[in-house]
């Protein structure tokens, strides 16, 4: 894969190993013009922002990109991506629901709903109504959620005090090891024997511990294996607090990292439900589905214009 670069102040080109693939998709087999109800979900997270279009209750298009330096622009840019891809404008949309850390700063949304409720609703769509336990490994927090067969939350907890067990923690290790973030999972299995976990409490400690292990002669693959194990142990301890039921589903960027997912499955002794849909859009998808239900109950909302 190609590694994007930035120019440092000294003018040298610096590869960005942490940079994950942004993604814009639309279902070519459908035409939004024939849909009766079109709703939008915008998830402005601390690291990534997503816009999802739902047409008559079905996923139609999405855009997933890195969050910029302010929430309103990130929300607008996420929408502009799908607007460009599909030709759909806000005038064609019946309701917009914002979610995520920046949900109250989505200028064109009609309602804000917490990411906990939206992830549960999105996971229910992506993994089916047998999903009961959801682990959302977000950019700067981690959530464990229980839901019922309709995707309604029955129990949740969130840890946003510490970056251990989050996507940002993985980005830090990716940059430190100079391994593209998309390759970390596969490389963590390329070891002769599974190492013990590094610190699972703090990314700063994990980073210094990882440097120490490299100096002690460990291979990069073995160090990332130890970090993936630490991350798995960390999130499993959160999950154990609310209990894990069959119908286990993982959302968020880390769900794309088999190095963490397989280790979580091994510790828990259960397989995560798989999906072909991008795990990062679960929150925005849930928001769009909430909007769909609200339009059916209350009728469509007047469109709010995008800022120039």
């Amino acid at each position: 894969m190609s590694i994007e670069t930035t120019n440092s102040s000294a003018g040298e080109v610096k590869p960005e190993f942490w940079r994950w693939q942004e993604n814009c998709w639309a279902d070519e087999s459908k035409d939004w013009r024939s849909a009766k109800v079109i709703t939008v979900g915008i998830d402005v997270g601390s690291v990534s922002s997503q816009c999802v279009i739902v047409a008559d209750g079905e996923l139609y298009a999405y855009n997933s990109m890195r969050t910029g330096n302010n929430s309103p622009d990130s929300a607008a840019n996420a929408f502009k991506g799908v607007e460009l891809k599909t030709g759909l404008t806000l005038d064609d949309v019946h309701m917009v629901v914002g979610t995520g850390y920046g949900r109250v700063n989505v200028p064109f949304s009609h309602k804000a709903i917490t990411e906990i409720a939206c992830h549960a609703r999105g996971a229910n769509y992506m993994g089916g109504n047998s999903v009961r336990t959801i682990l959302d490994m977000g950019g700067q927090d981690c959530k464990a959620i229980h839901c019922d067969d309709k995707g309604k939350v029955t129990n949740f907890l969130m840890n946003d005090k510490c970056a251990a067990g989050t996507g940002r923690g993985m980005e830090v290790i990716s940059d430190l090891m100079q391994i593209p973030i998309a390759e970390i999972g596969a490389r963590s299995f390329d070891v002769e024997e599974e190492p013990d976990a590094v610190s699972s409490i703090c990314v700063v400690f994990a980073k210094s511990e990882a440097l120490g292990l490299l100096k002690a002669g460990w291979s990069k693959n073995k160090v990332v294996a130890a970090y993936c194990q630490a991350m798995a142990e960390r999130v499993v301890s959160l999950l154990e607090r609310i209990g894990v039921e069959e119908g286990f589903f993982i959302t968020g960027g880390i769900a794309k990292n088999p190095g963490v997912v397989k280790r979580i499955e091994k510790i828990l002794g259960i397989q995560a439900v798989s999906t072909k849909i991008d795990s990062q859009i679960a929150g925005a998808l849930g928001a769009a589905l909430f909007a769909q239900t609200l339009v059916q109950k209350q009728g469509p909302c007047k469109p709010v214009a995008l800022a120039a």
């Binding site: 949740f156 510490c162 607090r241």
Partner: peptide, 16 residues
């Protein structure tokens, strides 16, 4: 719904 507010850090688990 059981709503857990709090965190886990190096010193322990603190949830209400």
């Amino acid at each position: 719904m059981i709503a857990n507010y709090g965190y886990k850090d190096g010193s322990g688990e603190y949830y209400i």
